[in-house]
Structures are given as C-alpha cells and as structure tokens.
C-alpha cells in the first residue's frame, strides 16, 4: 500500500433541492458524501438523471449546494476558479479562435507572458497529438480532435483538479477508445486529481482508480468500487470482466428502481 495521499475534494452530506419551498420542489441530491485524494482519478457513474453531472457542476462552482459542506483543499467552494479545469461533452471551444488561441485562453486571462504561453501551447499540442493544427479553427476539426483541444484548454493554466462531464459521450466507439488510452496516459504524466462523469461502465473500469456508483434520485453515492488493476488494463482480463459485471448489476438495480419510481 502507498501512503495515504491528502484529501483534495471533500463532500460531506450534500443536499440539493431545486425550487425549495414551492410545489415544484425537486430533491436532486440527498446526503452525498465523498472524499477524493490528491492525484486520484474518480469516476461518477449512475442512472441517467441521477445528478452526477449536477455534483460535478457543484465542484466546478456553477451550482450551489442547498446544504452540507463541499471543500477543495479544505476551503468551501463558492464559485468557479482557475484551480479547476472543466471539459464538457459538447467541447464548447471558442469557435472564433484557433486551436492555439483556445488552448492558451486561460494563460491570456492571467496575463502569462507570450513566450511562456507559446511554450505551454507547444507542450500541450504535443501531449494531445495535434501538432500542425495550431492555426486551424475548431470548425475544421473532427469531434475527437475538438475534445482533445478542450482537454488541453482545461489543462493549460495548470489547475489542480480536472472535471470532465461525459467527455467522450459524443464520440464514436473507435475514437473514444483511443481517447481513453490517451487520457490514462495524460493522467499518469500529470497526476491531476480528476472527476470523470460517465454512463459507460467499461469507460469507468478502464480509467478510474475508484468508481462511485450513484443511486437514482434523490441521489447519494450507493457504493464505491476501487479498481485494483495496473494500467494498461485489458477488457478481456478476468478481473476487468468481474468489475464490469459487478457495476453493471448495480447500475441495472438503480435503473430498475428509477423506472418503478416513474410508474
């Protein structure tokens, strides 16, 4: 066992209610607790509409918590900030800027000198495998390439935490697999604490140190599965199949629950 790493993100008994005190009040999250260690890669997995993205947005500082405590490095999260980087399923690059300008956005915001910006862009473009595309506009890139740029943009200003909201959800299977391998590689090089929302069990087992299974709404974390395998992991490995089976069964239970709730 490695020595325990310090806690990076700590969620204690978080609740989230939309339109509280009205007839249309919706309890999205009820009593969610989770500690994420520094450098850890954690997946948030669960039935659709369970609030895993909502939780990610809370850590991002975009959504307010109704009650509970949510800290980053021991300080309450009150809003978004450059100690976090975010990657969305829809990439949301700035279409009016070239690949290089998109990547260095955060560096221009914090007034990094030009030379350092150029060095950082060169380094990241290499990391994401898009050398030669620096001066291309995003609309000319494929979905996979745009998502690579989006990841580089989130990492450029060197945040401690990387938040990813179903980043590969809009990509075809082949591109997705390639991106997964590359993301594992990037994580092993940079050791950034990463929260990764997905609805793919395979993705979660392939990439994570721990997988957090959300219950259906009002959600909390039902179970946390530690994936005790070294990278690179193989989908045909017996242990991989075992983890996958276990999580799929757990997910199916929740989906079943959700359908029953609706009826």
């Amino acid at each position: 066992m490695e020595p325990a790493k310090p806690t990076k993100i700590s969620a204690q008994n978080i609740c989230k209610t939309y339109n509280p005190g009205t007839a249309g009040a919706v309890e999205a999250i009820n009593g969610l607790s989770l500690d994420v260690a520094d450098g850890e890669f954690v997946s948030l997995l669960g039935p659709s509409g369970c609030g895993k993205s909502t939780f990610l947005y809370m850590v991002g500082g975009f959504e307010k918590i109704t009650s509970g405590s949510l800290t980053l490095d021991g300080e309450q999260i009150t809003g978004p900030g450059p100690n976090r980087g975010i990657v969305f399923q829809e990439y949301v690059l700035f279409p009016w800027q070239t690949v290089a300008r998109n990547i260095e956005y955060g560096l221009r915001i914090n007034n990094t000198p030009k030379q350092q910006r150029e060095a950082k862009v060169a380094e990241l473009v290499k990391l994401i495998g898009l050398e030669g595309f620096e001066d291309v506009f995003p609309s000319k890139l494929s979905g996979g390439m745009q998502q690579r740029v989006s990841i580089a943009r989130a990492m450029a200003y060197d945040p401690d935490v990387l938040l990813m909201d179903e980043p590969f959800g809009a990509l075809d299977a082949q591109t997705r697999n390639r991106m997964l391998v590359d993301l594992i590689d990037i994580h092993q090089k940079t050791h950034k604490t990463t929260m990764f929302v997905t609805h793919s069990v395979e993705e979660a087992v392939m990439i994570s140190d721990r997988v957090c299974m959300f219950s259906s709404r009002p959600s909390k974390i039902k179970e946390i599965v530690t994936i005790d395998m070294e990278h690179p992991r193989s989908v045909t490995d017996a242990r991989f199949v075992e983890y996958q089976k276990r999580l799929l069964a757990s997910l199916a239970d929740e989906e079943h629950e959700r359908v029953q709730q609706h009826q």
Binding site: G60, G61, F62, G79, P80, G81, P82, R84, G85, I86, F88, E90, V92, F94, W96, Q97, Y105, G106, R108, I109, N110, R153, A154, Y157, P159
Partner: peptide, 28 residues
Amino acid sequence: PIKMIWAAQTAGASRWQILWTVVIPGTM
C-alpha cells in the same frame, strides 16, 4: 451556450474579460 461562459469562468476570467473574450465575439 452557458457552458462556454462556464469554461471562461473556470479559467479565471472576470466579468469584463468574459464580456470581451466570450460574449462579444460569440455574438458576432
């Protein structure tokens, strides 16, 4: 898209910076 604003906020952009670097070019 609100997420475009979020991406800028996360990078540390102030309200004025968001206006100049996201809102105005995005409205172009």
